[in-house]
Simulated scan of single mutants.
Amino acid sequence: MKTAFGGIRFDTTSEITEAVTAYFKKLDRNHFDIGISKLVTIYQKCIESDGDFVEK
């Protein structure tokens, strides 16, 4: 969203709501499923490193 709305100024709250709603409607249906499933790998790396910081 930072990239999509960077530099854009909205005059009203309703304009923001409409823009954000449109942004989410354009995303693939499985967009969040993919992101959440990647967490499993990240959590596993964290466990294996005894809780140390894990780079993507």
Rank of each mutant, 00 (worst) to 15 (best):
E55R: 14
A22W: 00
F5D: 02
D28Y: 07
D33A: 09
T17E: 15
E15C: 07
M1T: 15
E18F: 05
E48C: 04
D33Y: 15
A19E: 00
F10H: 05
I16E: 02
N30W: 08
F10C: 04
G35A: 01
K2V: 14
T21D: 02
Y43S: 09
A19P: 06
I36Y: 15
T12V: 09
K26V: 05
S37W: 06
D50R: 08
R9G: 08
A19V: 10
T41H: 10
S49G: 14
L27C: 10
A19R: 08
D28I: 04
D28K: 01
C46F: 15
I42W: 14
G51E: 00
G6D: 14
I34D: 12
G35N: 07
V54R: 03
Y23D: 02
T3E: 13
A22V: 06
K25G: 02
E55K: 14
T13V: 14
M1G: 13
T17M: 08
D28C: 01
F5Y: 05
N30S: 09
D52W: 08
I16L: 09
F10R: 10
A4T: 15
V20Y: 00
F24T: 09
K2R: 15
K45L: 13
K2N: 11
Y23H: 11
T13E: 13
K45F: 06
R9Q: 04
S37Y: 05
K2C: 06
I34E: 11
S49Y: 10
V54N: 01
F5A: 07
Y23R: 03
I36V: 09
V40L: 10
I34V: 15
F10N: 06
T12G: 12
E55L: 10
E15A: 15
F10D: 04
F24N: 13
I36F: 15
G51H: 05
C46Q: 04
E55C: 11
D33R: 14
I8H: 10
C46P: 00
E15P: 00
F32T: 06
L39Y: 13
Y23G: 02
R29M: 05
T12Q: 02
G35I: 08
I8N: 06
S49F: 04
T12Y: 08
G7L: 06
H31G: 04
D33I: 12
D28F: 04
G35T: 01
Q44C: 04
I36Q: 03
I47W: 12
F10V: 07
D28M: 02
F53H: 13
S49V: 05
D33Q: 12
